[in-house]
Amino acid sequence: MKNTITIVLLLLCNGLTFAQDNAKKKLETKSMFEVQVDSKTYELEEGNELDIDGELKNPKISIKLLGYKKFNAGNLSFEYPSNFSFEVEKSEAYRNWTLDGNNYVIMIFDIDGASQVKDFIDNMIIQFGKENCKTKDIQSQLGEKMLSGIQLNVELVGQKLSIEFYKYSTGENNSKYIAFQDSLEEDGSATVEGKMTFEMINTSIQYK
């Protein structure tokens, strides 16, 4: 006999509630749970069902909210810290997702038409002021891909900021980008949050 337990039922059993004020957001970022049924432990994505083979007799079920969520934009998915806020902006030819932590920000762009990483960097230099900016070409391994991009370092009013911008996919009339912004430590080193988040994304990212 197969037993099916939905995450909604488990949440109710455990006295937890979860709500999203936007249906699109619910599709693009989901909480992750650890579900324990007797002596077995399962990892489950919000909204999915847990199938258990065999007969359950008076099972003990517990559920724990994990410390990360799963982002999924259809062509790109990865895990990120659950305390990050989530915002999305969409129009006919432009889509932007922003995941914002305390010191670290992840940005994903999906843009129709011709564009390059340099276009974004040039616009940011105008905003911050050329005298406050330095750039360099970079390469980073992100999952199965070696991505090329540009790093923009900004020093403004005593604060140091690093923005790494990469193109991860190019179509005939479309380009997709991922960017990482870190509010650096006083000595110019990456924050703990930044290093931890980048590693979490690096080990979980999937391109579709």
Rank of each mutant, 00 (worst) to 15 (best):
N96A: 11
D100S: 14
D137R: 12
D182Y: 06
W97I: 15
S85R: 12
Y207E: 01
N153C: 01
N103G: 07
L50A: 09
S62H: 07
Q159M: 11
F165E: 07
N174Y: 03
E172G: 12
E55L: 10
L65H: 06
Q116W: 02
M146Y: 01
I5K: 04
S39P: 05
Q116V: 04
I5T: 10
I63F: 06
L9Q: 13
Q127A: 06
I178H: 07
K70W: 01
F165C: 15
K176N: 14
I126W: 02
N132E: 07
L50E: 08
E186Y: 03
G74S: 09
L76Y: 11
A93K: 04
K136Q: 07
I5H: 04
N83R: 10
E45K: 15
G67C: 05
E43T: 08
A114L: 06
I150S: 00
L156V: 06
T17I: 14
A93H: 00
Q139R: 08
G15S: 04
I61T: 09
I106V: 15
I163Y: 13
Q127K: 13
I126Y: 05
S39K: 14
L16R: 08
S189A: 06
E185C: 07
L44F: 07
L156Y: 10
N75V: 15
V117G: 01
I126R: 10
A114P: 02
V192A: 13
K70C: 05
V117S: 03
K160C: 06
A190P: 02
I61V: 15
V105A: 03
F86H: 15
K134H: 00
Y42H: 11
E155I: 12
F84R: 11
G171I: 03
S31A: 10
I106Q: 09
E193V: 14
S85Y: 09
M124H: 03
N75F: 14
K2W: 02
E28T: 14
M146P: 00
N173Y: 01
Q139Y: 01
S140Q: 14
D21I: 08
L10E: 02
V154R: 13
L152T: 05
E164Q: 15
L99K: 05
S204W: 05
N173H: 07
S115L: 04
F198I: 12
D100P: 04
E144Q: 08
L10W: 02
E43W: 06
V35E: 08
L156G: 02
F165A: 13
I106T: 13
E43G: 03
L27N: 11
N174M: 13
G47T: 10
I150G: 01
Q116C: 00
S140W: 06
Y94R: 06
K24P: 10
S82C: 09
N174G: 02
I52C: 04
K60M: 14
E46Y: 02
G149W: 04
C13H: 00
K167S: 14
K130C: 01
C133H: 05
S82H: 10
E34M: 10
K60V: 15
N75W: 12
V37T: 14
E199L: 03
N202V: 03
L9A: 09
I163M: 15
T135E: 01
T197R: 04
